[in-house]
Simulated assay, not measured.
Amino acid sequence: MEEAFKVYSEAGAVVATLEAIKENERAIRLYEKFGYEITDSLFYISGTLELSYTPLTCESIRPEQLPMFSFYKENVPWQCQWQSVRSGEAQIYFDSHQNPIGYSLYKRTWDQNGILEKVFLYQLELFDEVNEETIKAIFTSISEEQNKPVNFMTINASLSNPVIPLLLDLGFEKKTEQVQMVKQIKY
């Protein structure tokens, strides 16, 4: 840890973040000993939805374009930042007046027959009320599938994100829980 802090210092970092599996109490205590504090709970949850919803109005963009939008959330675990999502895709969703209501950063994988296998959600942020119909319309947009079951998995989704409880209500299951830890670096 001390070597890592030397590297951070040389790079001029002011904040260090990390994630630890919630059950790994020894590691968490070690990180706390070095000044890290738990700031959030993060979930990997997985579920399958049969999608038959009309997709929302959306614009597909390249993930590297997300930071150009004021609503993009940069302070997320490193695995969920656009730079870490190889072969990623992104969409911005709009209401009937063309006002943005949210965005997603995701990656789709296909099997050897070209059939959609799974969608990994790295970020799904909604700015207005979160409801089942909106989520299913977004998932239809992302998957480009209708009337077929699609498997989705969130990656390090914050427990504070209102989408997570809704997905759990829709039958998604928790696979892993982590804690996000932050240390302010002082010089």
Results as ranks from 00 to 15, higher is better:
K6E: 04
K6R: 10
E10A: 13
V15K: 13
T17H: 11
T17R: 13
E19V: 07
A20I: 09
K22F: 09
K22A: 14
N24L: 14
I28F: 05
K33C: 08
I38A: 08
D40T: 03
D40L: 04
S41F: 10
S41I: 09
Y44D: 15
Y44P: 14
E50Y: 13
L51P: 01
S52I: 10
T54R: 12
S60A: 15
S60H: 13
I61E: 05
R62S: 11
P63V: 02
Q65D: 12
L66W: 00
P67S: 09
M68P: 03
Y72N: 01
P77H: 11
W78E: 15
C80H: 05
Q81N: 08
W82K: 03
Q83A: 11
Q83S: 12
G88R: 00
E89R: 07
Q91G: 03
Q91C: 04
Y103T: 00
Y103Q: 01
L105A: 04
Q112C: 08
E117Y: 07
L121F: 02
Y122Q: 03
Q123T: 07
D128P: 02
D128F: 06
E129G: 05
E133A: 06
T134P: 01
A137R: 02
F139M: 15
T140Y: 05
E144A: 15
K148Y: 05
K148P: 01
F152Q: 02
N156S: 14
A157M: 15
S158D: 12
N161T: 09
P162Y: 06
P162R: 05
V163D: 07
I164K: 03
I164V: 12
L167Q: 06
L167R: 02
L167N: 02
L167M: 07
D169I: 08
G171V: 04
G171M: 05
E173D: 15
K174D: 04
K175V: 15
V179W: 00
Q180P: 04
M181Y: 00
Y187H: 15
